[in-house]
Design a protein around this nucleic acid. Structure first.
Lengths: 387, 387
DNA sequence: ATAGTTCGTTCGCCGTAGGAAGGAAGTGTG
DNA sequence: CACACTTCCTTCCTACGGCGAACGAACTAT
């Protein structure tokens, strides 16, 4: 079965159970933000007697801040506790072909510090220097590092290596983890976006979603049962390779589908329809054009139809229930999204909501926060989405 | 997501931690089969002092049987304990349109008793009567019931309702659970097969797999990270609906893909190629024909190509790493499987193994065992797939 | 004021995890 | 054959933590 062949430490040792309690309280407080001890007893199931010393400890460590008394209808008012997001910092590192952007955020996803560095010299060194510098005196509060590597559209972890040097997840992650002493997660940007939208965006109310990211290539990030799923070889979501048309042919690590329906491909057609410079937002431009130009409208419908078939394919396989449009696909206006939704509904075997993602550029950051926090909270009964 | 909004009991209460220890020992013993207390301390991390009374308890309950002393190079020989598979029985109920088959198995998947009943009267009553009768004096050892409902090929849980009466997961599962007092799981047969192959078949060495079941329709069962995934609406694996050819059209709850490439569709063509009675195993018949008949060989290749595009689609979305062929697809001979493997390798973005499933009819049973045992292990009341 | 209500803390019992020591049952060695 | 030596299992003991119960605190309602 699974590889839990050797659990070297007792499942119910003293330290372990203490840690479980701590994490249970912290994660509850993180969700509810401001609450009293009485609410904690309800939410965690721990007895008041157990909570008193634990809360005291957490206050001392800065996780919780004691606020004044709350309102009371009758009886002693509750002494309110506020979760301190600054008690947990997270670093999000984005690798790009020639540079590296690094952000320190608190557990709200609020950016505390950020910096962009040109890549020179060793990536690992650069990361291990930048993160502590940026974190400054907040370094002890650093709970995790998430490293986003590009390349969803270019065929998974394997093929992205050349673009940024050696980025085979494990080495870079392990090296940084050893240096900084906190959990490090390496993943591709689309997976992080999916995690971000799930944690704090258009998917915070569901346990399953698929984020469709259209850019130079087309990739998808998959959240099932509250977790990002990467598949056996980390190539889950490589939907640009879907063989939806026997005539389509991919080339050089570009999938057959994305060769025709990526942002690049659309941009070329848009330039043909409206000669001029390649627009920054080709899909937005196409939507605009389609209002007046009949040929543009027809092509827009082609694009929507193609994308809908892509979405339907994903729905047939994993039934995510909700699909988020990201990247160029998020440039669609409401009528276009509605049209897409209708096309999907007509062909999918189960009801599926199609929406735009809402976090935009901040999705990766929120995903990194979510990764790092859950990496820090290994082994606790994680209560995932907020209501 | 789930309704675990209010964990009413403490995460580390006394009973809970005791239960965790028990389960930890039991599941270790189930895997290793015969071991000593010393091995248990290593594997579970529990101290010898903790284990002594616990093991005594488990022996008294019949979970473990004390065997003679084992070999020893030096020192006191280990007193060997053998896991007793009969201590945990599981009922697997298969619903079919007009009948109901019921099997009692031990945790090895060895069938202890079985029976087939014609469906007359209330399904729930029938189940609640049959299971205890079959279990006999083993009833106290019953740890769970898994109910397999047909209908993967007919569009998920919703559409299978008419064929067997009311089978909307929840009612039937809850009712039986209330009557028998053990966890009950209801799922469709393909998901159970996937779980079975994962637990005891061609997928026991991997954490992710996709089982492709070709029958009247085409459906897939999905195991990701060791768990069967059903998707938000329980429609994951409805791959018969994949829009792989714009020209294909489904009808009446039959997907466009399966309308052309299911066992039925193949059977029709086989009859056309070799007039006569519809063969029991049309794919096997086609493979046989293809050895001599060129048109048959060409058609077989068409079928393999179509199936390979189906598999590639699934691989692009979830990258299972291993694909198991079940039902009619398992009738392929080695060269055909190799051909399929090659077609997949040529188009898939990640390496994928294509194999035949090995459990055949027993897959559902093993899946049921696996479900029921893990339902009992989590201590959760039930994990029901969404209706 | 007084009663009533709700919160938080302290106290103390009890159960249990795990260290330490000791008995049990073998193998090797003089 | 006695004696050390090794390994395994058990028993004893202690310290610690969970949680029930009693208590004090802080406020509202009458």
């Amino acid at each position: 079965m699974t590889d839990v062949v050797t659990p070297p430490t007792s499942p119910v040792s003293r330290e372990r159970s203490k840690e479980i309690k701590r994490l249970s309280v912290i994660s509850t407080a993180r969700q509810v933000r401001v609450l009293s001890r009485a609410e904690l007893t309800e939410l965690t199931g721990l007895s008041p007697a157990t909570l008193t010393p634990l809360v005291r400890e957490l206050i001392a460590e800065g996780y919780l801040i004691e606020r004044g008394p709350g309102a009371s209808r009758a009886g002693r008012p509750r002494a309110m506790l506020e979760f301190n997001p600054r008690a947990e910092l997270v670093a999000a590192v984005s690798l790009e072909p020639s540079r590296l952007s690094c952000e320190i955020a608190d557990s709200d996803g609020t950016v505390v510090a950020h910096r962009t560095v040109r890549l020179a010299g060793d990536i690992i060194d650069t990361i291990c220097r930048s993160v502590p510098e940026l974190a400054g005196d907040g370094l002890p509060a650093l709970r995790g590092v998430a490293i986003a590597a590009p390349g969803v559209s270019s065929g998974g972890a394997v093929r992205l290596a050349p673009s940024v040097g050696l980025v085979e997840g494990r080495p870079i992650g392990e090296a940084v983890q050893r240096h900084l002493g906190v959990p490090v997660v390496v993943d591709n940007d689309v997976n992080l976006m999916a995690a971000g939208e799930h944690a704090a965006g258009a998917g915070s109310d569901v346990a399953d979603l698929l984020l469709l990211h259209v850019a130079d290539g087309i990739g998808a990030g998959l959240v099932l049962d509250g977790q990002v799923r990467r598949g056996a070889g980390g190539a889950a979501g490589e939907v640009g390779f879907l063989p939806l048309d026997p005539a389509d042919r991919g080339h050089d690590g570009v999938g057959p589908f994305e060769a025709r329906w990526s942002e690049n491909a659309v941009a070329e057609r848009v330039v043909a329809l409206a000669p001029g410079r390649r627009p920054d937002a080709p899909v937005a431009a196409l939507v605009e054009l389609a209002r007046a130009d009949e040929r543009a409208a027809a092509y827009l419908d082609e694009v929507l139809t193609a994308w809908s078939r892509l979405i339907v394919s994903c729905v047939c396989v994993i039934d995510p229930g909700r699909v988020l449009l990201s990247g160029a696909a998020a440039q669609l206006d409401d009528p276009a999204v509605d049209r897409l939704q209708a096309l999907v509904a007509a062909a999918a075997p189960s009801t599926t909501e199609v929406r735009r993602a809402v976090l935009g550029d901040r999705a990766v950051l929120h995903g990194a926060v979510s990764y790092a926090l859950s990496a820090a909270a290994t082994g606790l009964p994680t209560l995932l989405p907020a209501p």
